[in-house]
């Protein structure tokens, strides 16, 4: 049995127009059945376009995508019958109640009235929305609306679930609840492709992570492996009033430092070891108006900074 749930080969997408945008520039990915796969990258990296192609809402310019072995361009309806989608935006049907959003969604997927009612009741129960069944969706808070969107995305029993920035705009409590829900997909055997620009989200939830930037996949591996093999380093932001290349070179020469680059705020130091490094940095930057030092332990974010020289939020 084929173990690949999503296969993306040489995927390119250019949005035409007077200023054509190349959103995807040759993406290759394989997502295995049953895994939670994180697509991590800054805004505009091509995450949403990738999900758009996989879910048949964006036509690729080149390359090929299959979901459960089915080509998304040749057989869009078949693909749609197998996937669930949680979009970045609240796309709940505002003309319908909470209950009706799930019920009619089931009907769109060909279920009988009896079956649709049964599944709607079950999902409302499981997602703790039963007491809101009769509410119109416009009255739901952001967290509840997102929960309903996820319930709707899985109520027709998809085998692959796409979640595009599911935690965007959620308060911290709702985000934690969301993470529990996503983690809960694993024992049920639902393959999840999750896009995010929160490295913590990708790190905590994903079996594997691909880091994407400017429409290209930079690396793809298990989070721990990424942090290990890329020698993920401690990132020290040295905030200075005056920073120049000479100073950067001097800092780069300090023991334990692998790289030092000038940034608008001062100098960014990537270090293998923090051993006695901070006092040395303070000493070396004397006379340059040092006013702050911030230390970030190795994370996917530092991996991203190492790969691109930029912050995920840059």
């Amino acid at each position: 049995m084929n173990q690949v749930a999503i296969r993306i080969e040489g995927l390119t997408k250019t949005y035409p127009g007077p200023r054509a945008v190349r959103a995807l520039d040759g993406v290759d990915l394989e997502v295995t059945r049953g895994e939670i796969f994180g697509l991590l990258g800054p805004n505009g990296a091509g995450k949403t376009t990738t999900v758009g192609v996989c879910t048949t809402r964006v036509l690729p310019t080149g390359g090929r995508v299959t979901v459960e072995g089915v080509d998304v361009v040749a057989e869009p309806s078949w693909v749609k019958s197998m996937v669930g989608v949680v979009t970045q935006y609240n796309t709940l049907d505002r003309s319908c109640s909470v209950w009706e959003n799930l019920y009619y969604h089931c009907r769109y997927f060909g279920m009988s009235g009896v079956e649709a009612r049964k599944l709607t009741g079950e999902l409302l129960e499981q997602f703790k929305l039963s007491d809101r069944g009769g509410s119109m969706v416009a009255t739901l808070s952001g967290g509840l609306a997102q929960r309903l969107q996820i319930a709707r995305a899985i109520v027709h029993r998809p085998t692959v679930l796409f979640m595009d920035e599911p935690s965007a705009g959620l308060d911290p409590q709702s985000r934690l609840a969301l993470w529990e829900i996503i983690a809960g997909m694993r024992p049920r055997g639902i393959t999840v492709l999750l896009t995010t620009h929160y490295m913590e989200e990708a790190d905590r939830l994903s079996d594997r992570v691909a880091i994407i930037d400017h429409g290209k996949v930079l690396v793809c591996d298990r989070p721990a492996e990424l942090k290990r093999t890329l020698g993920a380093e401690t990132v020290i932001e040295v905030h200075l009033e005056r920073a120049d290349q000479t100073l950067a070179a001097a800092l780069a020469a300090l023991p334990g430092v692998r790289q030092a680059t000038v940034t608008p705020a001062g100098i960014r130091v990537l270090a293998h070891s923090r051993d006695r490094l901070l006092p040395r940095l303070v000493e070396a930057t004397q006379g340059h108006g040092l006013h702050d030092l911030s230390v970030t332990e190795p994370t996917l974010e530092t991996v991203f900074i190492q790969l691109t020289g930029r912050d995920l939020r840059d």
Binding site: Q126, F127, K128, I154, V155, E180, G184, R188, I190
Partner: peptide, 8 residues
């Protein structure tokens, strides 16, 4: 809410 998921 770990079990809050429909069966695939």
């Amino acid at each position: 809410m770990t079990d809050a998921v429909a069966s695939a």
